[in-house]
């Protein structure tokens, strides 16, 4: 048996509303809110980056796992906003949680799929008994070009999962990965902001890939959408995950718990993983969870988890995801946001 033994999420306190961004670019806020089905997004303060979010999320995960950092044999952070171009993020996180020095470490990048990749590899290493405990983290402080549609959604957050073979709180029953070379979204070296193929990111990219992965996973498992209490998909905006869920035969009730994007924004590598933490926060023993991530470029990782009795012992040990999203928000104006995100040109 292999699965999640501890999990945690970290969402920054700062938020910016769609209206605030639209105002600056002379855009119509209502049509963006309708089109993207989101009203606000999280904003990282200047002292927050993908590493700090990873560390805080992993501290929660350790607490829920009931283990100390030195038990961790591998740690992977998936992100498209690693703070260094050259120098691992994972070593910082591993050092901070006390996992060094006997630990394997690598940083992943696969657009928004990097987090589920870290989870996938962690599960594999634990299952193969290469590791007793491995941590997979999805974390981003993603950037959209000023004025671009992405600016309304690119957000910050992290989720961390400790995989193990004992004291499991959600067993991983099946996984599947599905990918193709589909250049729907990219950022070249030395560029500040990504570019994307507009509507090409939809049907031939997001929908084709998630459906491909989801159908294969359902076939592999012999399970049907109605066998699941919850399902969570990559959520670049409010619309896509709901639409793909319905295409696959899931109902709104199954999708809503992990559907955080309307007030969180797109946390890229953190998106479906943070959604999963929100589900685990309220799941009951025996619940089945269906998760499919998506990363541009393009690929999906799919997981089927079955929640165990232990979930009830750990849910209240750390701050849950929904309260982090809904409470204690600090709203910023566009000027502050621009300053936080280093969008204002200054001399070095």
């Amino acid at each position: 048996m292999v699965g999640i033994v501890g999990y945690g999420a970290k969402i920054p306190r700062h938020r910016i509303k769609v209206e605030e961004i639209a105002k600056v670019w002379g855009a119509d806020a209502e049509s963006y809110k309708r089109g993207l089905q989101l009203t606000e997004k999280s904003v990282p303060a200047p002292d927050v980056d993908c590493v700090t979010l990873s560390v805080e999320a992993t501290k929660y995960a350790l607490k829920r796992a009931g283990i100390t950092g030195d038990k961790i044999d591998a740690l992977y952070i998936g992100s498209e906003s690693h703070p260094y171009a050259v120098k691992p993020s994972g070593t910082i996180c591993a050092e901070a949680i006390g996992a060094t020095p006997n630990c394997h470490n690598a940083d992943y990048e696969f657009a928004c799929k990097a987090g589920s990749e870290a989870m996938f590899v962690s599960l594999g290493l634990v299952k193969s008994e290469f590791c007793n405990y491995a941590v997979g983290i999805g974390a981003d402080t993603s950037q959209g070009a000023p004025g671009d549609a992405l600016e309304y959604s690119a957000a910050a957050g992290a989720a961390s999962f400790i995989m193990g073979r004992e004291n499991i709180l959600a067993e991983c029953l099946y996984t599947h990965s599905w990918m193709s070379d589909t250049p729907d979204f990219w950022r070249r070296e030395h560029q500040h902001y990504p570019q994307h193929g507009g509507r090409f990111t939809g049907e031939p990219a997001y929908f084709r890939t998630i459906k491909g992965c989801a159908y294969a996973l359902l076939e592999k498992s012999g399970m049907k959408p109605e066998d699941f209490k919850y399902a969570v998909f990559h959520q670049p905006n409010g619309k896509f995950p709901m639409r793909v869920g319905k295409m696959l035969g899931f109902e709104r009730e199954q999708l809503e718990t992990g559907w955080l994007v309307p007030t969180l924004g797109n946390t890229y590598s953190g998106a479906s993983p943070i959604g999963l933490t929100a589900i685990l926060d309220i799941a009951e023993p025996g619940d089945n969870i269906f998760m499919v991530s998506y990363g541009s470029g393009a690929g999906s990782d799919g997981f089927i988890f079955k929640v165990t009795d232990r979930i009830k012992e750990v849910q209240d040990l750390c701050p849950k995801t929904r309260p982090q999203l809904d409470e204690n928000k600090i709203y910023v104006d566009y000027g502050t946001y621009a300053k936080f995100r280093k969008k204002i040109l200054k001399n070095d």
Partner: peptide
Amino acid sequence: LEFRRVQTDAHHGVLSY
């Protein structure tokens, strides 16, 4: 106490957490 960036050493230096 939370883990944060404390100093960034401009745009090129080592980050201090």
